[in-house]
Design a protein around this nucleic acid. Sequence first.
RNA 1: UCCUCGGUAGCUCAGUCGGUAGAGCAGGUGGCUGUUAACCACCUUGUCGGCGGUUCGAGUCCGUCCCGGGGAGCCA
Length: 489
Amino acid sequence: MPHGIWRNSPGWMRHGCPGREKWPYSIRHRTRKMVNAMKTRIKNILQEKGTGQRLTITGWVRTRRDTGGFSFIEVGDGSCLANLQVIADSRLTNYDSEVKHLSTGTSVIVEGELKESPAKGQAVEIHADRIEIVGHADPETYPLQKKRHSFEFLREISHLRPRTNALGAVGRVRSRLSYAVHQFFQGRGFIQVHTPIITTSDCEGAGEMFQVSSGKPGAKEDHFFGRAAGLTVSGQLQAEVYALALGDVYTFGPTFRAEKSNTSRHLAEFWMIEPEMAFCDLKGNMQIAEEMLKYLLTDVMTNCPEDMELFDKFIEKGLLKKLQDVVDQEFAHITYTEAVDRLKSAKKTFEFPVEWGLDLQSEHERYLTEEVFKRPLTVTDYPAAIKPFYMRVNEGGKTVAAMDILVPGIGEIVGGSQREERYDVLVSRMEQAGINLADYQWYLDLRLYGSVPHAGFGLGFERLIQFVTGMANIREVIPFPRTPGSAPC
RNA sequence: UCCUCGGUAGCUCAGUCGGUAGAGCAGGUGGCUGUUAACCACCUUGUCGGCGGUUCGAGUCCGUCCCGGGGAGCCA
């Protein structure tokens, strides 16, 4: 750890935490001497199984079992789901004083030899000749136990929950999916655009914006940016700017909605992937969305097999089969008009009315994707009146070139459209929507100078992770969920 | 925001007709030479979500607020 960190830290950091006087300065010195390259990650050890080697591992004690003169200690370092079993016996100088009291959550450095394990349950284990306790975790107060906890409880300790099997697996799968998103687009020549997080344009129809102010006293009316600004609800409009310059682009960033939505599928802060493609129509849009979803599912099943097995076994039985079926089958496709006909002739009775011109309700979407088609379903060509101004008006003027991809269990996971590229049509749609044209002249300019047919969509990253992991509540698939009334750390 | 179900030990939950609270797990101590949610014995743990009310007496009944689950709307 660089010296400067200590010099610039508050006093309690340099002299020890208040109430933590038990832990002497020596811990700090040991930490400062630590060399990152010394340690071997457990994931690599389990892959290579190089028995006979002397290794150093670092991690947190998951559980300890004593038997006669020695102990089994399971240590996890977060690199993978599996722990490494450490054999510790009385030859260790601190065996009686420290090792026999090791409790869940304690951080340790273990040095020893990797050997083949004589018992079932693990192929290899490390026989320790040195175990250093780095940081204690008082078992009387440490909230995590070596047993199952409810996700509701874990949500209250979002700073500790990634240390559990399920939430740790979500963390790794999320990281892998994020990497795969970039691989998918970069591999197809898409260029990533960092669209603004603070924005002055409201992507109409995308929900309510959080307002941004400088927070300085008396500055309420005096807008920092010269006009009202908010946190982005979508990067789409700005992505269109770059699509009409660089061709195929995508954004992948945080998005904010000030809606008081209290459901298992909504967050006030979430991450969204938004590709935008020039010289592309609705068909091309649907194609790339389906290809992308299949690529991502295949990638995560290939590269996170242990984590995915955990979800398959404990979170959603049959998950892996469900995902493989999605990869193997073509997505179903119907138009909104056909969807309405199907719903009207369905034997099932719905709580909400089905009528051409009304938006499809959650129950309708769920019925179509879960009961009628039993696989992902793309619904296209919605009534113009219920969709935002930027969607391209179809011939006849009644519908727009919109598409929603619905998946069983989640509902809408992708929403997109071909964009209106005709200047005059766009202007009249904006006027109908009551939008101030002057504020959006930059957006209209794209149609004035070198306009081309273009299309794009938004994929809710957390909804994708929900679908991939089978986690029932979206608050479990983002590290620090922000929901109405809750943003603990 | 609306509907609905909840809040009791560190965790998961029981608590009958209103009479000052209980189980399993976790934790502690001891035992055990290969454990896998180890096992066996003994022991500890409470602002019954907050506030107010009814009552001789409230975990239990009433009001209100806070927090959480599920559903709806909005959407990704």
